[in-house]
Amino acid sequence: MPYFRITLLRSAIGLPTKSTGVLKALGLRKRMATVYYPVTPDVAGQILRVKELVDVAEVDEPLTRAEMKERRRPDPGYFVEKRGGALKKL
């Protein structure tokens, strides 16, 4: 089932109440927040109302909050070959 991935890029400060209301209904509370909704005409209409403010992509599966956070984590620059505790036992 395809989903819309909607990210709020521009805030709706100073825009008509309808834009603010749509963002609230979509659950976009602050910039760079991302939400997933199934591809339906209802959601499409909501996105069209705030199309200047959001970035939209079509994805197959929605990501959970934890998964999204894990993807943002930068590469640590090292990898662990062996743990210290494992060495002691040998």
Binding site: G45, L48, K51, V56
Partner: peptide, 21 residues
Amino acid sequence: VDNVVATIDSALAKQGLSTRK
């Protein structure tokens, strides 16, 4: 904005849907 509209259009068209707007 063009990209957003095109994305919505292609996503809905895959399911054979569209909206008046």
